[in-house]
Amino acid sequence: MEGTSLCVPIVILLMQCSPSLPVTVSSNKQKVEVHEFSDAVLSCMFRTERDQNPRIEWKKKGKDVSFVYFDGHFRGPFEGRASIEGATVTLRRVTQEDAGEYRCEISAPFDSVNLGETNITLRVLVPPNTPACEIPSSAVTGSAVQLRCRDQQSIPPATYAWYKDNQLMIPPRHANATYLINTHTGVLEFKAVAKEDTGRYNCRASNGVGKPMMCEGRRMTIEDVNITTVVVAAVVVCLVVLVCGCGGFLMHRNGFFTREFVSSFWISECHGASHISSQNLNRTEDTSNVNYIPPPQEPQDFKHTQSFML
């Protein structure tokens, strides 16, 4: 009995002296990836020291921190499409607007450490859409040509593959290849196209989420350059430039472009124009004199022209 009576105080003393754990918060999955329009589970588990009814809050980080769950209710865009069990939240039919970093906060005022939190990152995966392709309809042999393919909405970013006449074009691994393919940017580049590059091209985008998507194919025709026509045109242009240059040089050498020549030219032109105007004026006056007929004279007053003998 004495041994038993001695053990009880010792046990009580040990219980009082043993350290108690403060509030702790954790998650079994810090990074969550789900497909668009599916449900996302954000786990949050906690343990408190004394407080049996701690306060649970969820927040979403961004430019500003916004409430997801506060005071027992979901807030903003999560209202009506989210549920909570314990401290674990389920978001239904998530979209890209839901992607981001979330924080689960547990507040236990009666604990020695009264606040604990854990962060969870939500990534919403988006399958590829039909990529936008830029394929020229024609090109000239020997010219550099780029074909472009891009899907800006897929998450993670898509990688690209090119097809010619429904045959996969393998990205070359040697420096002397006639074309290059960048699988990350979607650019198919020809250093110098040839007749053999004529064909129907299309591009496929894939990112491991959903099925790959392809753009509509388009035919690119490579046309030869008419060397004879180009040479003849160049020769004709050179001859025209040469003749004009020689003619201008000779006219300048003979004084056609001097200031005295220009002044005398304009003086002579003005003098000739004045002379012609004077002749036209005289001719007009002569013509008017020839055609002029004086009006018949009225008989003068009788008493002035005749006298009477009385």
Rank of each mutant, 00 (worst) to 15 (best):
G199E: 02
E260Y: 04
C215A: 11
V241N: 12
V237Y: 10
V25E: 00
F74Q: 02
F78Q: 01
S5I: 11
A87R: 03
A234L: 07
D51Q: 07
F110Q: 13
H252K: 15
A139N: 01
P19L: 12
T258P: 02
K211R: 12
Q146W: 08
K63N: 15
R75N: 12
G247T: 11
K59Y: 09
L6D: 13
R47D: 06
I170T: 09
N280V: 13
R173C: 08
T95V: 04
A273H: 09
L42C: 01
R50G: 03
R75T: 13
S5N: 14
K61S: 11
A158T: 06
E2H: 07
F67C: 05
V230F: 07
S206C: 06
V124L: 01
E101I: 13
E33A: 15
N28R: 07
T159C: 04
H252T: 13
T228V: 14
H271V: 11
L115A: 06
R81C: 06
P109H: 03
S206R: 06
C270E: 15
G72Q: 04
E79Y: 07
V68F: 00
D301S: 11
G208N: 04
R92I: 01
M251Q: 15
Q152D: 15
N226P: 09
A194L: 11
L180T: 12
I135Q: 02
M220Q: 08
N207G: 08
A273K: 13
N280K: 12
H174I: 13
T88F: 04
E298K: 14
V89E: 01
P131R: 01
S20L: 14
G100E: 02
G210N: 03
C215V: 05
T178A: 11
L188E: 00
P77M: 05
E260L: 07
V237C: 13
P127A: 06
G245D: 04
S206Y: 10
Q30D: 14
D197K: 00
E298V: 10
R218K: 15
V290Q: 08
R259S: 14
N282T: 15
K31C: 12
